[in-house]
Amino acid sequence: MTQHDLPEPGIRVLCAGPLALLQDSGRFGVRHLGVTQGGPADLYSWAWANHLTGNLWGSANLEITFGGLKLVAVRDLEIAITGADLGATIEHKPVPLWQRTIWKAGDTLTFAAPVSGLRAYLAVCGGFAAEPVLGSVACVTREELGGFEGNGAKLATGDELSVNRSGSGQQLANAPTEAPKDVLPDFSQPAVLDLLPGAQIASFTGRSLFDAFNTWWQVDDRADRMGVRLRGPTLNCKINTLISEGISLGSVQVPPDGQPIILLNDRQTIGGYPRLGALSPLSASRLAQCLPREPVRLIARGSDAVLKEHRMFRAVFHSEPV
């Protein structure tokens, strides 16, 4: 660690709001211990926030759900906000999203409420500083792991957040200051989600398979970082429950009530309901921006096309200094 990287208080939390969490790319290599992956629910927007602030892939930034968050800068910071439009303002002036911005010491940054989308990402040049737990700072409240204190605590009013002194001028000089228009997601459009068929899909009735892919599903109120429940026609599977098995990100499981649940980052590591398959990682990201009662549609995709899109997305970001 060079002197430039030494963490110092950078931000003070004036009002914590319902849910703001520190997230790096997630906790990996420990799922066999029953530890979930965590990480950003919207990987796409999280990655762009890091990229615009010259931070490497895997750097931690803040995932802000719904809004209600008020922060004050302790010193001058350069930041980028991506993901949902939560009506962010600095000293009552709207903050431009998906681009780098100056946040002056003493100024208050406020996230009000969703305009479109559900989760915003706030990255700072230099990156947030926290001690990893089980190899990651990803904050999982249910497991009491990660975050600034290491105990899975979400942001609380009065917290002081450590930010590394941004030393890597080279890194920042090479980073774009603004995301190109063609990469900006439009969360006001209904979500169409890519599903890779798999698992027990053959055990669903023909009618249910037709319904699964020809319905505008509605996002239920029961939606969080563990999973998102959908409402719509009842899906019937010849299998009711399975012997519990490992479940991957984006898995679309159907419990006996016939209403699908799509599993996200904080899901339990194993589960016993039949599944239609799993969403692509980018579609899981898109789903994480849906508010209750918004419509979503599932479409079946082959892995070749989805892999190509995923690799194109990842090719933009640096995992090593340039």
Binding site: F28, G29, V30, R31, H32, Q37, I243, S244, E245, G246, I247, S248, T269, I270
Partner: peptide, 13 residues
């Protein structure tokens, strides 16, 4: 990335 063994299966990530 991860291996998740369970009763009758192995998930390979």
């Amino acid at each position: 990335v991860d291996l998740v063994p369970s009763y009758t299966t192995l998930l390979i990530v």
